Amino acid sequence: MYMFNLAEKEVAISEAVTISELIKNYLPESDTDKLPALIKAIANYIEKTSIQNPVTLLQEVQQSLSEPHRALQRLLIHMVTVGTSEDVLSVKMYTTGDVARFFGVSVATVNNWINQGRFQGVVKGERFKQARIPENAVYVAPTGVKTTISEAAQRYEEEQVRLGRNKPVTTVEELAELVNAVVYFENKYGGTLETTLGQRSDLTPAEKRDAEQWAGLLRSIERRNA
């Protein structure tokens, strides 16, 4: 990670302003109408990846779309300010098993949600590796309702306390959830990974996702049993 002194921070912010002014002054008028698409994409990226949702920034950008160079300038300054800051905010990370408990679904369902892009702020990890989901990630339901993982976790904990079940999840319970997810795939395809999807080369995109998730679950179980 790069470290910045005060002078370097000032230079970086100044360059962000300069870039937006250059775009304003030298971008052909015929291309100006294309700039809002770029601005919206950058704004979406910031919203999906920010530790704290920058509501005020996004509102300002939305209101400035009629002056695209100004909206771009605001985004660039925000990105440079965050990039040169030495502040590191601690974000709690959850496993797919944790999130499955919070929402009352299987691990396989959570993995499907990740592949479907239903979590804002979650990037699919390396193949066969269990995803880690930050507490500030946002789950978007089919109805459009949004829920942060921290909100879901809080509701889950409150419900466990109400039911008198507020005991820590044991390793055995975590393993049981992984096994249940594997059983889900075995029932879905009528056998083990090796005897079903693992034997085929003509998998559909959905089957390929299932095969990756299935293999990832098996590796997680193997690591816990090692």
Rank of each mutant, 00 (worst) to 15 (best):
A108T: 01
D98R: 01
V122S: 00
S66D: 08
V91P: 02
R101D: 13
K92T: 15
M79E: 11
F128T: 15
F128A: 14
V110F: 11
A108Y: 06
S106F: 01
E67T: 15
Q120L: 15
S106W: 03
V80T: 08
R127C: 15
Q116M: 14
S106C: 11
K124Q: 11
F119W: 02
Q120R: 10
D98Q: 01
L89N: 03
G104Q: 11
G121C: 01
V61G: 12
F128H: 15
G117R: 06
R101I: 09
W113S: 11
K124V: 06
L89P: 02
M79C: 09
R127Q: 14
E86I: 04
R118P: 09
L89V: 04
F103I: 12
N111M: 12
F128W: 15
S85T: 07
A100Y: 04
R127W: 06
T109M: 09
T95G: 08
Q73Y: 00
Y94D: 09
H78S: 01
F102R: 00
S106L: 12
T81A: 04
Y94T: 03
G125L: 10
V99L: 07
V99A: 06
K92V: 14
M93F: 05
F102D: 00
N112W: 10
N112H: 10
H78I: 05
L89I: 07
S64W: 03
Q73E: 10
G117W: 04
G83K: 05
Q73D: 11
R118V: 14
G125W: 02
L65N: 15
V91T: 07
A108R: 08
L65M: 15
Q120A: 13
S85F: 07
I77Y: 03
L89D: 09
Q73K: 11
G117L: 14
R101F: 11
S106A: 11
Q120S: 12
V61C: 12
R70H: 13
S90A: 10
M79Y: 02
V107P: 00
Q63I: 10
E126S: 10
K124I: 12
S66W: 07
L75P: 00
N111L: 13
V123R: 07
V107T: 08
P68F: 02
R127F: 10
G97H: 00
R70A: 13
I114N: 05
V110N: 01
S85N: 08
A71R: 06
G121A: 07
D87V: 09
H69N: 12
V122R: 00
T96V: 15
H78E: 13
L65Y: 09
